[in-house]
Design a binder for these strands. Structure first.
Lengths: 184, 184
DNA sequence: TTGTTACGCGAGTGATGACTCGCATACAAT
DNA sequence: ATTGTATGCGAGTCATCACTCGCGTAACAA
């Protein structure tokens, strides 16, 4: 039942947008009555949070997995594959990405998002710290912070805006930015 | 009168947040009656748009001016000064930046923001195109797009989050990223 | 002084939507 | 069969706004 409600919430968010995310609408989409929602969720915000949390966690998980898989490798190919995984993860649910990043007031999901960013950052920090030949920057933690935020925004904007560059070019440029930065 | 209303709107946004941005509240803050708002604005959204537009335009103007001032120079110092101007512009009204970027659904201001980014991007594109010795990237437009989005997000997150790096270090890293990227 | 106009006022209206509460139904236990 | 319990229902309540409308008033013209 919780599943049905969450699925319906996601549906409403994607199809009708954040403004239409009312308890009545979600209940109707789930095929249950408004009252029934409140046997499983204390309030509307909790439903929304769960939908968003799952999306963010799924996305972070995909990226984290790609990163972990490649963590023993090194060099441009590894960077490129990771960037590719990031873009692919965001592309896979473009509609929800748009709602989450452009319609939702993201103060609500900021804390969660920051946590997930930190997880990825920690992976990268460890990677960089272990490979001084690939990382000429003095502070691996700071470098990881820079990379995560820069790449994240590039990927999100590329997916959501009319991309001014083709996908392959984007990946090339991302690799150049990461490599150029780390080796400078 | 329009000024008073816009100022009050900004005030409410900063002090009480986006959720409290009601016509009644804005009117009270402006010391006028709710009805009077509607002699100067057709609806609430227009008031909000004006407040946000001004903020975005002011900020873009500061950055654009710093960039134009330095446009004849080159090298790391120029990049650093521009990055400094960007960070300073965002720092100068941190409370409003927080509301605009974390509480407002930014679909509304997305178009405007994209326009302003494009202006800055065009300046940078011209700059890069004219200086092949500083720019080894094949597509100056794409390179400018990358730089604007990467630097913007870094600066915003640095100003809004608990900065994991001190300000001077941030600027150093930004310079390294820009230079490393362009010369790779 | 008087007439006119336009500005500002603020109580009121209508719509919306989160949430509740008393009822019905299905099923379990006796 | 009968009673007890839990689950779902959905009309209703209550609060919140965005926006309106008819009035008072103040400034200015005649």
């Amino acid at each position: 039942m919780v599943e049905r409600i969450v699925a319906a919430g996601r549906q409403v968010l994607v199809d009708d947008g954040y403004d239409a995310f009312s308890t009545n609408r979600v209940a109707a989409a789930a095929g249950v009555s408004p009252g029934s929602l409140y046997q499983y969720f204390p309030d509307k915000a909790t439903i929304l949070d769960l939908v968003v949390d799952r999306y963010l966690a799924d996305t972070a998980e995909q990226v984290g997995a790609a990163l972990s898989d490649r963590i023993t490798e090194f060099g441009p190919a590894m960077v490129r594959d990771t960037a590719d995984a990031l873009v692919a993860a965001l592309e896979s649910d473009r509609a929800l990405l748009r709602v989450v990043s452009e319609e939702l007031p993201l103060a609500r999901s900021r804390r969660r998002l920051t946590d997930l960013e930190r997880q990825v950052r920690d992976l990268i920090t460890a990677y960089l710290a272990a490979r001084p030949e690939l990382n000429h920057r003095p502070d691996a933690g700071a470098a990881a912070w820079m990379l995560v935020l820069a790449m994240e925004n590039l990927a999100v904007r590329w997916v959501l805006d009319q991309p001014p560059v083709p996908r392959e070019r984007l990946l090339d440029e991302m690799v150049a930015m990461v490599a150029g930065y780390l080796l400078s």
